Amino acid sequence: MANTSKPVFAPVILAGGSGTRFWPRSRRARAKQVLALEGTRTMIQDTLDRLRLVAEPSATWVITNGWLREVIVEQLPEVTGEHVVSEPCARNTAPACALAAFLLERTAPETVLGVFPSDHVVANPKRFAEVLAKGIEIAAAGENIVVLGVPPTRPETGYGYIEQGALYERVEQTKGFAPISVHRVRRFREKPDLTTAERFLAAGNFVWNGGIFLWSAKTLCAAIREYTPEMAEPLEKIAAAYGTPEFEKIFAAEYPKCENISVDYAVLERRSARGEQKANIFCLPADFGWNDLGSWASLYEHRAEREGDNVIDGGTTGVFAIQATGNYVYAPGKTVALLGVDDLVVVETDDALLITTLGRSQDVSKLVRAIHEGGREDLI
């Protein structure tokens, strides 16, 4: 008799980044994911809220760092405290994803893990849940890997791309949503130059890699053992120590031995080299109003109702604008006057003031690096 039981699903929220492109609001101890950049809920709270549609908060894991663990535990009281794991050092997404898989493999290897960045925006949570439910089903049906691809709207050079291959399945929906088209993945592409991005857009079968992945714990563990065996050994030791008095000591000693590498490079690209039919990597459409809010410019674009609007944020008490368009301003408690300026980013906090342009907002992280090199750790 076929097994028709519902797959066990455990979301894994990656929340270890420092959000340097949102400086000066984002700092080590209050990074982007724990800020309310849209509405009153923080970004990580919004992430958990939409995941409630497919999983209980108590089943959720959060991989973060020592700077943020306390505030995340406060903001997500429904997540089991033992499931909020602080990395002793930053090691990119492959060790973070694999850590959760190795922890769960010992007791529940069939569990489907969903990897979700903590700082994305989703406009249509119900569609998100519909797509995710189908992805969980596919991930549970063997050694399959599922990725969510964002339909591109422009020739973007800041994202990696997924090249879709043959149509695997087309799922009709009954709740008013569009069908879900499941494609095999042909290969993954790195961030392209503009000419290549334009070619991808014109081809029609390329989508943005939004960093959302689904796989069973045993599937990811097997892939780590196959492709990065040197990472598997310390993770095995960490998982064996979980729940014991020695865990923190072993975690601190073994985790730094993991390679600093993204899961895209460590697993996905290497698995895709098997070929479209043998890799068993499937792409589902992330057609639910996705935005990664990666910079002040992307926040401006998300918030502006019309091109050229000035976006005034964060309790700024008033604004006077003359011949000024396309500016983003965050200055709580202040009246701001804009005269003859366009496309600026102005962000004020108690101890810092950022003035840049929308076009250079991706480079704010370079500014943070310079502040660090200048010895001003109090500003980081």
Rank of each mutant, 00 (worst) to 15 (best):
D292I: 02
I355W: 03
V368F: 00
I145W: 06
N65M: 00
L354H: 05
L132F: 05
G314S: 11
T42K: 08
P88I: 05
R69S: 12
G375R: 08
I136T: 10
L35R: 14
A239N: 04
L37D: 03
A239I: 01
T111E: 06
N260I: 09
T244P: 04
E301F: 15
K334P: 06
V73N: 04
E373M: 13
E70N: 12
T47A: 12
P155E: 13
P109M: 08
G158L: 14
D193M: 06
E307Y: 00
R270A: 03
V34A: 07
A203G: 10
L284I: 03
N260Q: 12
D292S: 14
E307I: 02
G176Y: 07
V207E: 00
G149D: 00
E87D: 09
A197T: 01
P151Q: 02
V182K: 06
T60P: 06
D309P: 04
G66H: 14
T357M: 00
I250N: 08
V311H: 05
T157S: 05
W23N: 09
M43E: 10
D49F: 09
E130F: 01
E190G: 15
A241D: 07
A129M: 03
A139Q: 09
K278Q: 15
A133S: 15
P192A: 00
E169T: 06
E246P: 07
T219K: 11
L99W: 10
S18D: 15
Y227G: 13
P192S: 01
Y265I: 10
P24V: 05
R127F: 03
Q33I: 12
P179T: 00
T40I: 08
V12S: 06
K6I: 13
G135T: 01
G66F: 03
N92V: 10
G375D: 09
T4P: 11
I261M: 08
R274G: 02
P245A: 01
Y328K: 07
L76M: 02
P155W: 14
F282S: 11
Q45K: 06
T93V: 04
L51A: 04
V311I: 07
E156D: 14
S5N: 15
V182R: 08
A10E: 12
E169S: 13
T40K: 15
L14G: 06
R28D: 14
D264M: 10
P155C: 09
R376N: 14
L48S: 04
A279R: 08
F22G: 04
L367G: 14
P192M: 01
V182N: 09
V8A: 10
K218F: 01
N144L: 03
I44Q: 02
I261V: 13
